[in-house]
């Protein structure tokens, strides 16, 4: 007991090290935040003005009224949520199928899915672009969402998770008169919630941070996602819109992701620690 409690306390030097590391990592974020709170004219004179008052919310007001940022934010939310919901649905169904159903070529098909993990996006992006162009799917939500639905890792992950659930439960439910759909929907799916959360968070973050495909697919400003939109704004070398405004955009863009992190902190840490299953 005493040793365990003692071990939980970091030695002073280590504590200092961790604090220093944290400070170094937080510094640019704080700087960004401070810059976003300064008026442009002040920053033009002296960029170190960020460290002293007066602060203003002017840049944020500009985002909300005069810019495309809210629109891009909405696009990002639609694309990310759409992708996440669809991926969870498809991967759960596929995982259940691979783990529980017996059908011809199941193993072969599973290997085939796993091979999907080995195909880099770069290898398929050109044909995909052409395909979508032919189908006229560029500059549309489906065009932004659909490529994200091929999720071999998610299928693999959910399959493993379903496999770890004892078959006794399915059988007990069947003896309780449950149909196959009941078993899936009322017994197994609720038990995969931790996996859904993990996969959901990663899919959401991946989709939110994706830059390349939206850059190719969304060519009109009204279909930009945040990543593409903000990057486009940075290309504005003249900095006419100002450093403070740019930083405010960055802060603004990171708010949804911050919320996701805060809500799903536990799942993210678990997944990072590789302890997601079980």
């Amino acid at each position: 007991m005493t040793t365990a409690a003692h071990n939980n306390r970091l030695p002073l030097t280590a504590l200092f090290g961790v604090l220093l590391g944290a400070a170094i990592m937080v510094a640019p974020l704080v700087w960004t935040l401070l810059l976003s709170l300064k008026s442009n004219s002040e920053l033009m004179r002296d960029s170190s003005a960020a460290f002293s008052a007066p602060y203003t919310l002017e840049n944020y007001r500009a985002i909300l009224v005069g810019s495309d940022v809210p629109r891009w934010l909405l696009n990002s939310i639609i694309v990310s949520l759409g992708t996440t919901a669809a991926v969870l649905m498809l991967c759960s169904l596929a995982g259940y199928g691979f783990a529980r159903l017996d059908f011809p070529f199941r193993r072969t098909l599973f290997v085939f899915v796993l091979l999907g993990l080995a195909i880099p996006e770069q290898a398929v992006i050109l044909p995909r672009h052409q395909l979508f162009a032919t189908l006229g799917w560029h500059n549309s939500y489906p065009g932004l969402i659909l490529p994200g639905l091929a999720a071999p890792f998610g299928v693999f992950f959910m399959t493993q998770y379903f496999r770890a659930i004892p078959k006794d439960l399915d059988e007990a439910a069947m003896l309780d008169g449950a149909s196959r759909l009941d078993v899936f929907w009322r017994i197994l799916l609720p038990l995969t919630l931790p996996a859904q959360a993990t996969l959901g968070v990663f899919t959401f973050l991946g989709s939110w941070n994706d830059y390349w495909w939206p850059l190719i697919s969304a060519t009109t400003s009204d279909k930009y996602t945040l990543t593409v939109g903000l990057a486009a704004a940075q290309m504005n070398y003249a900095q006419t819109s100002g450093l403070g405004f740019l930083m405010a955009q960055a802060v603004f863009a990171s708010i949804p992701i911050l919320i996701v992190y805060i809500i799903f902190q536990k799942q993210i840490v678990q997944a990072m620690a590789g302890a997601a299953v079980r």
Binding site: P166, D168, L169, E171, A172, A173, L175, I187, P190, L191
Partner: peptide, 11 residues
């Protein structure tokens, strides 16, 4: 049927 591992629905 009463299962050896009980098979109660955990949730």
């Amino acid at each position: 049927l009463v299962f050896q591992q009980y098979a109660l629905y955990p949730h």
